[in-house]
Design a protein around this nucleic acid. Structure first.
Lengths: 121, 121
DNA sequence: ATGAAAATGACAATCATTTTCATTTCTGAT
DNA sequence: ATCAGAAATGAAAATGATTGTCATTTTCAT
């Protein structure tokens, strides 16, 4: 049970709230922080577990970590530049609830993300 | 410029229109087909290029290839026993399209999964 | 101070994917 | 049919992100 190293979260914030593990590691090194790559990965995993950051994938499959505000919302992500908009789920919320009920599921939550090319790319 | 080996596409079809490169390779081996992993990868890349298959990502980042004609659906997953139901997206489809349009996104796709405890658990 | 539990990080291992390169197959002109 | 060049193939090595291992260090309550 490992907790997150606070410097990792603070670096992710400084990076604009959007970076890969490797990028965070390199950034911390460049800034003279002494930390191991393993700890960066573990801290990020722990942050994802605690739902403090979201785990997404770049086009090439590399994991990218993004700070997440706590209100429930969904994302519209550009697959090229990674630009992300937080959007409302709208009908998705009711749909999820109805589907869960219909099949007898309890304690449900859901994810819904839209990916594509933004207008700039 | 390599063209796709037709046996790769036919295997993807036989696999239910949804599989990773590694899975397709293993499936072909099991069925006695003689093909190299490299060729499987190259063929799939070429099929993606020609927009005959879609390239998606599993949760762990592994690339999965899906026949474009394949019926699009979503999942209801039990977080305890892992049991999975394929469900209809219903209003999610329109929501995704509308959101993408509203923000000027092109070539969009989306994911929407519901998690919870099934009636047996 | 002391011991147990958690955190750390260097290093090795894993695994999907890509690159390299030598060999084989295809193709089309002669 | 023959031959040369182009394209396809696949074994093996390289790459690169991520995870596992494990000995060491730090934390913290007693």
């Amino acid at each position: 049970m490992s907790r997150s190293n606070p410097r990792v979260l603070s670096t992710l914030e400084r990076a604009g709230g959007f970076a890969s593990a490797q990028e965070i590691y390199k950034l911390m090194q460049r800034e003279g922080e002494s930390i191991g790559l393993t700890t960066v990965y573990r801290s990020l995993q722990s942050l994802v577990n605690d739902k403090i950051v979201d785990l997404l994938r770049r086009d090439d499959g590399e994991a990218i970590y993004r700070l997440c505000s706590d209100a429930h919302h969904h994302h519209l992500v550009c697959k090229n530049c990674g630009d992300t908009l937080e959007i409302e789920g709208g009908p998705v919320e009711k749909w999820a609830k109805a589907m869960a009920e219909k099949h007898g599921f309890r304690d449900v939550w859901h994810t819904a993300e839209i990916f594509g090319l933004c207008s700039k790319c």
